[in-house]
Amino acid sequence: MKFTQMAKATEIDRDWVIIDATDKVFGRIITEVATILRGKNKTNYTPHVDCGDNVIIINATKAKFSGTKLETKNYYTHSGYFGSTKTHKMSDMFEQNPEKLYKLAARGMLPKTKLGKSMLKKLKVYAGSEHPHTAQIKG
C-alpha cells in the first residue's frame, strides 16, 4: 500500500527565485509569488509546512495595472479607535512605497496564521534592478 509523503521542515530545500516585474500585470505577479511562497509549485507540497522558496521581485515600479485600479482602488487602515479609519489610494502607495504594496497584496493570498507570516518574510521587493542577494542565487 502506498502512502502520501508528508514533507518535514528539516527536509525542505529552499531556492531563490527572481521575478522581473517590468511590463507585467501586478495581480498576475502576485499570484505567481503567492504560489511560490506557499510551495504549491513543488511536488512535495504539504499544507501545514512552510515548503516554499524565497522570492525576489526586481523593478517593482515598472509593473502595469489593468483597468483603472491604480486611480480608483483604495486601501483602508484602522487603529482600533473610533473614527480612526484612514484611506490610502493605490496610486499614492505605489509611488511612495511599492514594497509595502507588494507585501500587502501577497499577504492577502497567504494563510492568515503564523505560517503565513513566516512565508511572507521570504519575499524581498526592490524598486530597481539591483538587489543584495546575489550570493544566494545559484548559477
Score class of each variant (00 low, 15 high):
residue 3 F to N: 06
residue 3 F to M: 03
residue 5 Q to G: 08
residue 6 M to C: 00
residue 6 M to D: 04
residue 7 A to F: 00
residue 7 A to Q: 13
residue 7 A to N: 08
residue 9 A to M: 04
residue 10 T to R: 12
residue 11 E to I: 09
residue 11 E to Q: 13
residue 11 E to N: 14
residue 11 E to G: 06
residue 13 D to E: 14
residue 15 D to E: 15
residue 16 W to Q: 10
residue 17 V to E: 08
residue 17 V to M: 12
residue 22 T to N: 13
residue 22 T to P: 00
residue 23 D to C: 03
residue 24 K to T: 00
residue 25 V to H: 06
residue 28 R to Q: 11
residue 29 I to W: 04
residue 29 I to A: 01
residue 30 I to M: 11
residue 30 I to W: 01
residue 33 V to F: 05
residue 33 V to N: 03
residue 33 V to L: 11
residue 33 V to A: 09
residue 38 R to F: 00
residue 39 G to D: 06
residue 40 K to L: 10
residue 40 K to P: 07
residue 40 K to A: 15
residue 41 N to I: 03
residue 41 N to H: 15
residue 42 K to L: 08
residue 42 K to N: 09
residue 43 T to M: 14
residue 43 T to H: 10
residue 44 N to Q: 13
residue 46 T to W: 01
residue 47 P to G: 04
residue 48 H to R: 09
residue 50 D to V: 03
residue 52 G to T: 14
residue 53 D to S: 09
residue 55 V to C: 11
residue 56 I to R: 06
residue 57 I to T: 06
residue 57 I to V: 14
residue 57 I to N: 04
residue 60 A to E: 07
residue 62 K to P: 01
residue 64 K to D: 08
residue 65 F to S: 05
residue 65 F to G: 04
residue 65 F to I: 09
residue 66 S to R: 12
residue 66 S to C: 07
residue 66 S to T: 15
residue 66 S to I: 12
residue 67 G to M: 07
residue 68 T to H: 12
residue 68 T to W: 00
residue 68 T to F: 05
residue 69 K to D: 07
residue 71 E to K: 12
residue 71 E to R: 12
residue 72 T to Q: 13
residue 72 T to N: 10
residue 75 Y to R: 08
residue 78 H to F: 05
residue 79 S to R: 11
residue 79 S to E: 09
residue 79 S to M: 02
residue 84 S to I: 05
residue 85 T to V: 13
residue 85 T to S: 05
residue 86 K to F: 01
residue 86 K to G: 01
residue 86 K to W: 01
residue 87 T to Q: 10
residue 89 K to F: 04
residue 90 M to K: 10
residue 91 S to Q: 12
residue 92 D to W: 05
residue 93 M to F: 03
residue 97 N to D: 15
residue 98 P to S: 08
residue 99 E to Q: 15
residue 99 E to C: 10
residue 101 L to E: 01
residue 101 L to K: 03
residue 102 Y to K: 01
residue 103 K to Y: 01
residue 104 L to M: 13
residue 106 A to P: 02
residue 108 G to Q: 02
residue 112 K to T: 01
residue 112 K to A: 10
residue 113 T to P: 08
residue 114 K to G: 12
residue 114 K to M: 00
residue 115 L to E: 10
residue 116 G to S: 07
residue 119 M to C: 07
residue 121 K to W: 08
residue 122 K to W: 00
residue 123 L to A: 13
residue 123 L to C: 09
residue 124 K to F: 15
residue 124 K to W: 13
residue 124 K to L: 12
residue 126 Y to D: 09
residue 127 A to D: 15
residue 127 A to M: 06
residue 129 S to D: 15
residue 131 H to R: 10
residue 133 H to S: 09
residue 136 Q to E: 15
residue 136 Q to C: 08
